[in-house]
């Protein structure tokens, strides 16, 4: 079975190029060099149709960049992206357009992701009209239908974004993504900015829409309990690399990678027991200057000599479970 969406060896580098001032400074011996950030580093990821994949990591681990590559907002520096068995690079213009419409993105900040000068009906209706999915004369009715679908009162379609609360704005963002009839939605921290009770409403909406429309999700979040609740499979990223990937139940029951174990230990849980946990030390290192070998070794309690020298590969440790850790090679 070919995957619905498949990333093979995808990398994204952001390069700080020498500008004229830097080049002139170099003439005088400043010795400035180009610097590259490996935001995403050789990532393989296959998503099946109808699956919800949770992508978890700390800020700066490259999870949003990966989401943007999947959604077609950014191009990968290396690697191939396949959609329904066809490589993106081999697609013609029409196929590419279909891909971009089929994959939509919902953003974190419901305040920044909506144009404050546009009415809700234009925010939601502009794209389907522009792409010829509906006629301009049908826009009003179409927008009302989509708004009802995401739980917004259609009477509010002439309003501006500032007239809505945070949760309602996030619904506008969802409606905008749904308006072009996507098959796949990338949610980038889509509930992170919401109150717990509103977050529950939006998560329920995501689950309802999945049932009604058969959507596939890539759900990016740093909140483990949200990901545990909504995902079928969880992928953990650390500093540009995937360190573990497993079905949700298995990952939460028995995390393999030391980083996953640390993340799970620190996730706040709704139990009133005093946890005298000792948090993992330090912070995620700068991607400008990642540590050699396994990126996690400076913070890892189990690190040994090999971790400093050699980057572990993502290997299958059980059917459907992948982990990148040298500890798995030891008996």
């Amino acid at each position: 079975m070919t995957a619905f969406l498949e990333l093979k060896d995808v990398s994204k580098r952001f390069v700080w190029r020498l500008d004229i001032a830097a080049k002139i400074a170099n003439l005088f011996g400043a010795g400035l060099k180009e610097r590259a950030v490996h935001a995403v580093n050789h990532v393989d990821l296959a998503i099946q149709e109808g699956e919800v994949v949770g992508l978890v990591g700390e800020s700066g681990c490259g999870k949003s960049t990966l989401g943007r590559i999947v959604a077609g907002i950014m191009d990968a520096s290396d690697g191939t992206i396949g959609f329904r068995g066809k490589a993106l690079a081999a697609m013609n213009a029409a196929e590419r357009r279909d891909y971009k419409l089929a994959v939509q993105m919902i953003f974190q900040d419901p305040y920044a992701s909506l144009n404050p000068r546009m009415r809700v009906e234009d925010i939601i209706g502009e794209a389907p009209v522009a792409h010829g999915l509906i006629k301009r004369s049908e826009m009003g009715a179409y927008v009302e239908r989509i708004m009802a679908q995401v739980g917004l009162d259609p009477r509010y379609r002439r309003r501006y974004p500032h007239q809505f609360s945070g949760g309602q704005r996030q619904r506008i963002g969802i409606a905008r993504a749904l308006a072009v009839k996507p098959r796949f939605i990338v949610c980038d921290e889509a509930v992170a900015a919401l109150d717990v009770s509103i977050q529950a409403q939006v998560l329920n909406l995501f689950m309802d829409l999945r049932e009604q429309l058969g959507l596939t999700y890539l759900f990016i979040s740093h909140n483990l309990s949200v990901v545990e609740h909504i995902s079928d499979r969880v992928v953990i990223m650390y500093l540009g690399r995937v360190v573990e990937s497993a079905p949700t139940e298995q990952l939460f029951a028995a995390p393999n990678h030391p980083y996953t174990q640390a993340l799970l230990a620190e996730a706040p849980k709704l139990v009133a027991t005093r946890r005298d946990y000792l948090p993992i030390k330090g912070e995620i290192p700068s991607p400008l200057d990642p540590p050699p070998g396994c990126h996690f070794h400076p913070r890892c309690p189990h690190a040994f000599a090999r971790c400093k020298a050699e980057a572990p590969v993502l290997k299958e440790i059980a059917p459907g479970r992948l982990s990148a850790c040298h500890l798995n090679d030891q008996v």
């Binding site: 717990v196 009770s197 977050q199 529950a200 409403q201 998560l203 329920n204 689950m207 309990s225 949200v226 545990e228 609740h229 909504i230 949700t248 139940e249 849980k269 709704l270």
Partner: peptide
């Protein structure tokens, strides 16, 4: 009770969360 029910993790996976 509503606040506790809307925290994901309090409910079985994939089930609807309690909504106030």
């Amino acid at each position: 009770r509503g606040l506790i029910g809307s925290v994901p993790g309090a409910m079985p996976r994939g089930k609807r969360l309690f909504q106030i």
